[in-house]
């Protein structure tokens, strides 16, 4: 059975811990991984893909030493292996231009400002994972409790 991964990329260890803690509940059916840099994330993405598993969601910090979050998201967006992967930008600081860039070049799906609200973050994650599962055509039943109901119901209705 293929695994679906949620990857969080954040250079500040404390912040990463906090994000992972907030998404802990998803570990019941998904696989949660943290990365401290974009380069590390790229390696992990390769590895997961090579193992035949899915990257359902990539949560990415904006400003990081080395490659920035947006650069990473742009690369993932261009990569056909991850065409269904959902992308969430988590940022404390972004200009108008950054935002435009993130949407146009990286095609990010969601944009959350730091400090984030736990419930809001989890709700967004549910929505994105639901979309991913239906986009990718994975049987949704097993993941049902962790997916956004609205998305699931709409997709199921359309699916007949």
């Amino acid at each position: 059975m293929e695994k679906i991964f949620i990857i969080c990329v954040e250079d500040q260890r404390e912040v990463l811990n906090a994000v992972l803690k907030d998404l802990e509940s998803f570990e019941a059916v998904f696989f949660l991984e943290g990365c401290e840099s974009a380069d590390e994330a790229e390696e992990l993405l390769d590895e997961i893909d090579a193992g035949g598993n899915y990257i359902g969601l990539l949560i990415c910090d904006h400003i990081m030493p080395g490659k920035s979050g947006i650069e990473l998201l742009i690369e993932v967006n261009r990569d056909p292996r991850f065409s269904y992967t959902k992308k969430l930008l988590l940022t404390g600081l972004a200009t108008h231009q950054d935002t435009i860039n993130a949407i146009n070049s990286a095609a990010i799906d969601r944009y959350i400002e730091k400090p984030w609200n736990v419930d809001a973050l989890q709700a967004q994650v549910r929505t994105l994972l639901a979309q991913f599962i239906f986009d990718q055509g994975i049987a949704y039943e097993k993941y049902l409790p962790y997916l956004d109901q609205g998305v699931v119901l709409e997709r199921v209705r359309k699916g007949g």
Binding site: H62, I63, P65, G66, K67, S68, E71, L93, A94, T95, Q97, D98
Partner: peptide, 14 residues
């Protein structure tokens, strides 16, 4: 008042 973090250039807090 301009945030200057673009493509690998970081100015700390801007």
């Amino acid at each position: 008042d301009v945030t200057t973090k673009v493509e690998g250039l970081s100015f700390g807090l801007g």
